[in-house]
Each structure stands twice: as C-alpha cells, then as structure tokens.
C-alpha cells in the first residue's frame, strides 16, 4: 500500500444510509468486472430480439402500436433498465439470509429494509453507469429514437427512479422467502423470469395475450420497465400519463408498507440459520 495512506482514520460523519450506499458502491467497483459483465450479458438479449423484431417488421409497418424504430429503442431501453437490481443484488440479499449473515445487519441500529435499499442503490449507481454507457453506444449504432420531448425525458427519469425502488421492493420481498426455502437459486431465477415477463421487458405488454395484459397492467411490475419506456417514447399523454405515474406511486407505497411489515415477521417466524 502507498506510504501516503492515512495514518489515522479521518472521519467526517455522513448520514447513515448514505454511508451504507457509498460503501456498497465501493464494493460494486471492487467487483466491477462481474458487475459490468452481467450488464453486458443483458445486452445479448437486445441483439437477439433486435434481429427477431427486424424480421417481423419486414412484413408489417406497425406491430402492437410500435413502429420499427420505436421497437428497437424499446428493447434497448427495456433491457438496459432491467439490468438494474440484477441477479447479483438479489443473490446478496438471499445469501445473507441463507447463511445467517443477516444477524450482522440486525445487531446494528438500522432498519433492515432501508439498509438493503441503500446497499442496492449504491450498487445500482455502478450498474446504471455501465448500462447507460452501453445504451448510448448501442443507441447510436441502431439509430434509436430520442425521447419524445424534454418533458417526456424528465418524467421518464422520475418514472425510472420509482421503477427502480419498485423492483428493489419486489426482489426484497421475494428474498424474504429464503427464510423458508433453503435454496435461493431457483427463487432468484423465478423472480427474474416473472419480472422480465410482467414488466414488459421480454415483450411489450401490448403484445401479450389479452388476459395477461389485464393482469400485467394492474401489477406493480409494469412500473419497472413498461411505464418509464412508454413515457420516453411519448406513448402516454394527458390523463393516461398521470394515471400511469399514479399507479407507480400507489404501488410503491403499498409495496413499501408491505415489505416493512413483512421482514420482522419473517424473522420472527423462522429461526436464523446456523450458529
């Protein structure tokens, strides 16, 4: 280590949860290779879907209300956004529960839900930087369409942030199931698949079977991808737009309250694994 390393720890106190987020960010930087490679892995799907949809659009100018430029922008953004709170974040929460390391979080004067949010957010900053860089590069390469308007872009960013917390809450609540199921890998894959489908990442919700559309449009998952990307593309205006954001915020509040009540119960119901 360099001789310039501080002799005595210097402290400038920071708000608790910010400090936790920053530490998680540092941790994600230490694992930058795995963080970035999992982001890149996501974009392989973009390539596959790009060629699939290109073939489909060769015969049709409009599919489910999408033009070809809109569709390729959609899949790029959808996968870029869904890369946040990825497999690694879910694994971290599940692993801590499974191995009993969760006790370390519990002996501290912290709210468990907020601690996990702070850690996930810290890691997401690195995920987002990597994802944004790839979106911009690929976006230029495939001629993605720009946001519908400046306002659409601002609302897109807001919707995206709400969507991020929504996804975190879904993953967090699912991870609590690890108190009962000892295996976490299956759980992690399952939640990934369900989110991918119901958020409109795999296929835009407008192209799902009618009954599934009804379900997907009511559930919180659409707020993770379909709502922000739809706003970006200018698909929603006026009251529809307001309704979409209201649905996102409504679910955010419901999920937050549910998650905050769920975790102490999960702890109470089940003993903590190991020593």
């Amino acid at each position: 280590m360099s001789a310039a390393a501080p002799a005595m720890p210097v402290s400038r106190s920071r708000p608790r949860y910010l400090a936790i987020a920053l530490a998680a960010m540092q941790q994600a930087v230490a694992y930058r290779l795995s963080t970035i490679s999992s982001i890149i892995g996501n974009f392989f799907w973009v390539a596959i879907l790009y060629y699939l949809w290109r073939a489909a659009f060769a015969q049709n100018a409009d599919i489910g209300g999408f033009t070809w430029p809109e569709m390729r922008t959609y899949i790029l953004l959808a996968y870029g956004i869904n890369a946040l709170v990825g497999f690694a974040s879910a694994s971290r929460m599940m692993y801590a529960i499974r191995t009993g390391d969760v006790v370390i979080d519990l002996i501290r004067p912290l709210n468990y839900l907020r601690t996990q949010l702070a850690m996930t957010a810290g890691a997401a900053v690195i995920e987002a930087l990597a994802s944004a860089a790839i979106i911009v590069l690929l976006g230029l390469a495939i001629h993605a369409v720009p946001p519908a308007s400046a306002l659409a872009f601002i609302l897109f960013v807001i919707s995206l942030l709400i969507g991020f917390v929504t996804k975190f809450l879904v993953v967090f609540t699912v991870s609590l199931l690890c108190f009962w199921t000892i295996n976490s890998t299956g759980l992690n894959w399952a939640q990934g698949a369900v989110i991918s489908l119901l958020s409109g990442t795999l296929v835009p919700i407008a192209l799902l079977p009618d009954w599934l559309q009804v379900v997907a449009n009511a559930l919180p998952m659409r707020g993770i991808v379909a709502t922000p990307v739809g706003i970006y593309l200018g698909q929603y205006t006026g009251w529809t737009l307001a309704g979409m954001l209201a649905l996102q915020i409504g679910w955010l509040v419901v999920l937050w309250l549910a998650a905050d009540r769920a975790w102490p119960r999960a702890f109470r119901a089940v003993e903590i694994q190991g020593g």
Binding site: P9, S11, S13, A19, I20, Q26, Q27
Partner: peptide, 17 residues
C-alpha cells in the same frame, strides 16, 4: 473488499459517533 479503515468509518457513521 473495502479497506478496514473505510469499514470502521462506515460503522462510525452507522452508530452516529
């Protein structure tokens, strides 16, 4: 993956010392 000194600082913040 974080230097010990940083982990201590984080704990100092968490406990609001």
């Amino acid at each position: 993956d974080i230097p010990v000194v940083e982990a201590f600082r984080l704990l100092g913040d968490i406990y609001e010392v």
